[in-house]
Amino acid sequence: MPFTYFWIFLAVILLLLDLWVINSVWRSDNSTGNKAGWTAMVVLLPFLGLAIWSIAGPRGVTKGPSSPEHSKG
């Protein structure tokens, strides 16, 4: 049984990383078509899409918090 929990743990970590990547892609300043392409790659090929995005994906986030209450910095 512990071996099964290991794979579940890895799947959860991969899912969280993919969600983080998708959020980062949609907050970037690229075109909507580019964003859709990156999202499709990450959703359809979770591990490979994550690896390719880490090398060639969009850099920088242009949209900050939506209100001053959300930026506690």
Rank of each mutant, 00 (worst) to 15 (best):
M1A: 08
M1S: 08
M1T: 05
P2G: 15
P2D: 15
P2I: 15
F3M: 13
F3H: 13
F3D: 06
T4Q: 15
T4V: 13
Y5P: 00
Y5G: 05
F6K: 06
F6V: 10
W7M: 07
W7F: 14
W7S: 03
W7Q: 11
I8N: 09
I8S: 06
F9K: 14
F9W: 14
F9Q: 12
L10T: 13
L10F: 11
A11S: 15
A11R: 10
A11K: 06
V12C: 11
V12I: 15
I13G: 12
I13S: 14
L14A: 12
L15E: 03
L15V: 07
L15G: 10
L16R: 09
L16P: 00
L17I: 07
L17N: 05
D18N: 15
D18R: 11
L19K: 13
W20R: 09
N23Y: 02
S24I: 02
S24L: 00
V25R: 02
V25S: 00
W26M: 13
W26V: 11
W26A: 04
R27S: 00
R27Y: 00
D29W: 00
D29G: 08
N30Q: 13
S31D: 14
T32M: 14
T32S: 15
G33T: 02
G33H: 02
G33I: 06
N34P: 00
N34A: 02
K35Q: 06
K35P: 01
K35V: 02
K35C: 06
K35N: 00
A36V: 12
A36E: 02
G37N: 14
W38K: 01
T39W: 01
A40K: 04
A40E: 04
M41C: 08
V42T: 08
V43S: 03
V43Q: 04
V43I: 15
L44E: 05
L44P: 04
L44N: 04
L44S: 10
L48D: 07
G49T: 03
G49K: 01
G49M: 03
G49R: 03
L50F: 13
L50C: 06
A51M: 13
I52N: 04
W53S: 02
W53I: 00
S54D: 03
S54E: 00
I55N: 03
A56V: 12
G57K: 02
P58S: 10
R59T: 12
V61M: 04
T62S: 07
K63C: 04
K63M: 11
K63T: 12
G64H: 12
S66V: 05
S66I: 04
S67V: 10
S67M: 10
S67R: 14
P68Y: 08
P68E: 12
P68N: 08
P68L: 14
P68M: 09
E69F: 09
E69V: 10
E69N: 12
E69Y: 09
H70F: 08
H70L: 11
H70P: 00
H70V: 10
H70W: 02
S71G: 07
S71Y: 13
S71H: 10
S71T: 13
K72E: 09
K72T: 14
K72R: 14
G73H: 12
G73L: 07
